[in-house]
Computed example of a mutant assay.
Amino acid sequence: MHRRTAAADAFLTQAPGVSRIEERIYTARDSHVRPLRDFSASVTSDGPAITVHGPSRLTATRVAGQDIRAVAALLIAALAAEGVLTIEGIYHLQRGYGTLLPTLSALGAELEVVQE
């Protein structure tokens, strides 16, 4: 097991096989798991550990991120998802990843930010 990050969980939805990652510092940091499941990802949370079965075919839906890590994870998953989707709480990214959306857009991601 490795130290868990929400972004890693999102990346692992596209990796073949079963991945199990454990958070050793903030064990209740799993607010991104339910929204990832809403994307049709095969992700489960069991205390400090998250198990991801991949790869998952992610589909568009409307999800909400509760903090900066969750929103970053959902954005990563959204890049791999099919269809048009909505992420609520995108304002959390401004706290630490203010240049992420313009950078992704410059790389070819089709993004539209609507003020919440």
Results as ranks from 00 to 15, higher is better:
residue 46 D to R: 13
residue 20 R to D: 02
residue 14 Q to P: 05
residue 42 S to W: 08
residue 107 L to F: 12
residue 36 L to C: 08
residue 106 A to M: 14
residue 89 G to W: 01
residue 45 S to W: 06
residue 28 A to Q: 11
residue 40 S to Y: 04
residue 52 V to W: 05
residue 83 G to Y: 01
residue 18 V to F: 05
residue 88 E to A: 11
residue 5 T to N: 09
residue 42 S to G: 03
residue 7 A to T: 15
residue 82 E to F: 06
residue 76 I to C: 01
residue 19 S to C: 05
residue 14 Q to I: 02
residue 60 A to R: 06
residue 104 L to N: 08
residue 87 I to V: 06
residue 89 G to E: 03
residue 33 V to W: 10
residue 17 G to F: 07
residue 23 E to H: 03
residue 79 L to W: 01
residue 104 L to P: 08
residue 52 V to A: 07
residue 47 G to Y: 03
residue 36 L to G: 00
residue 2 H to G: 11
residue 72 A to S: 14
residue 91 Y to P: 00
residue 56 S to R: 00
residue 54 G to P: 00
residue 108 G to E: 09
residue 9 D to K: 03
residue 65 G to N: 01
residue 13 T to G: 00
residue 103 T to M: 05
residue 15 A to C: 10
residue 105 S to Y: 08
residue 42 S to T: 13
residue 76 I to M: 01
residue 70 A to R: 03
residue 90 I to T: 02
residue 107 L to Q: 10
residue 28 A to D: 15
residue 90 I to L: 06
residue 87 I to M: 07
residue 28 A to E: 15
residue 102 P to T: 03
residue 15 A to E: 12
residue 45 S to R: 15
residue 87 I to H: 09
residue 87 I to T: 04
residue 96 G to Q: 05
residue 88 E to S: 06
residue 55 P to E: 02
residue 39 F to A: 00
residue 64 A to F: 03
residue 21 I to S: 12
residue 17 G to T: 11
residue 13 T to A: 03
residue 32 H to S: 03
residue 100 L to F: 04
residue 46 D to H: 14
residue 33 V to C: 13
residue 87 I to G: 02
residue 2 H to N: 15
residue 71 V to H: 01
residue 66 Q to D: 15
residue 9 D to Q: 12
residue 84 V to M: 07
residue 5 T to Y: 10
residue 32 H to C: 00
residue 41 A to L: 05
residue 21 I to N: 08
residue 107 L to C: 07
residue 33 V to D: 09
residue 65 G to I: 05
residue 93 L to V: 00
residue 21 I to V: 14
residue 72 A to M: 14
residue 10 A to H: 11
residue 101 L to S: 05
residue 101 L to K: 08
residue 40 S to F: 12
residue 96 G to L: 04
residue 97 Y to D: 11
residue 83 G to K: 02
residue 8 A to H: 11
residue 31 S to Q: 12
residue 43 V to I: 07
residue 92 H to I: 06
residue 7 A to F: 12
residue 79 L to H: 00
residue 22 E to Y: 08
residue 63 V to M: 04
residue 24 R to S: 07
residue 74 L to A: 01
residue 44 T to K: 14
residue 11 F to H: 08
residue 14 Q to L: 05
residue 65 G to V: 01
residue 89 G to C: 00
residue 50 I to C: 10
residue 9 D to G: 05
residue 35 P to A: 10
residue 16 P to C: 09
residue 15 A to L: 12
residue 95 R to T: 07
residue 2 H to L: 14
residue 34 R to T: 07
residue 113 V to Q: 09
residue 110 E to D: 10
residue 50 I to E: 10
residue 103 T to L: 13
residue 86 T to Y: 08
residue 64 A to L: 02
residue 111 L to T: 03
residue 81 A to K: 11
residue 85 L to H: 12
residue 1 M to N: 10
residue 61 T to M: 08
residue 75 L to E: 00
residue 44 T to Q: 15
residue 3 R to D: 12
residue 87 I to Q: 08
residue 22 E to P: 00
residue 38 D to L: 15
residue 77 A to Y: 04
residue 12 L to P: 02
residue 94 Q to M: 10
residue 3 R to G: 13
residue 23 E to Y: 02
residue 9 D to M: 14
residue 29 R to F: 04
residue 62 R to E: 12
residue 100 L to N: 07
residue 59 T to R: 15
residue 44 T to E: 14
residue 3 R to Y: 12
residue 4 R to W: 05
